[in-house]
Nucleic acid binder design. Sequence first.
DNA 1: GTCGATGCCAAGCCGCTTAT
DNA 2: ATAAGCGGCTTGGCATCGAC
Length: 283
Amino acid sequence: MERAKELGFPINPHTTVCSDIEQAIQLIETWTSKRESLDYEIDGIVMKIDSVAYQESLGSISNAPRWAIAYKFPAVEATTRLIDITINVGRTGAITPEAVLEPVEIGGVTVSQASLHNADYIINRDIRIGDSVQVKRAGDVIPQVIRPIVGVRDGSERAWSMPQTCPACANPLIRLPGEADYYCVATDCPAQFIRLIEHYASRSAMDIDGLGSKLAVQLVDDAGLKTIADLYRLDVSDLLELDGFAKRKAEKLIAGIDVSKGRKLSRLLYGLGIRHVGKTVAE
DNA sequence: GTCGATGCCAAGCCGCTTAT
DNA sequence: ATAAGCGGCTTGGCATCGAC
């Protein structure tokens, strides 16, 4: 940091060296109360091993160094009403329940939805539709439903259970013994296919410029896409039939699809969306 | 002016493999 | 035998930019 400063980079003036863990804890306590005095917001403090030699011998795991970690201040919590629980069908057919919340301000943003992860998450916490719930932003970012406030129930709350059938294709949902998620295992489920198209076109797969989630819906619902291969049978005149498409946008998308023919085999493999074949495995 | 795509900030949970 | 590591999968919000 000192060298960076010498080179003219702006560095944070509050950087402090602590000689042991007690001093580090003391520093956190000091800043917990002084936090409001800064003219910018902070969500915690980064602790680093000062010795470069120790940093090198500690190394890294995956993306994170073992010699630096963030202490995060407790996230702000808010109370709101759980209006409904909807379910989402993922690319692999995994079913994820989602909380529809009465919009509430938390840490400067409005939270109206949160993932509920799986059926057990809801059942174990006894979360019911209509409940008042405590919500926070985990790591000050990701909206999370923590627990229901049982004491304020008035009897109108309804217990939730996982639907028996897929909301998109009406085929039965299946949960394998020992697994947490329910799956739609239909091979022709439109919700799964829309997600597959999104994934296939995404930046780290075939990187088709201009094809995102909204367009995937349009292509499947309105342009009659049935397989990934159908993408390559589209032409400009097909796209001009669709809402919001004019010449320029249609030509750009066709060009983007064309360019994707030249992508590496590993990107194609990843793009096909085979379970347990992620980016690393594909490469 | 509006809508969608994208890149950025991220965490929880799960299933499996590897290290201790 | 247990813990740590890791990849995979899913999600929310915001700023910015381009197309319509």
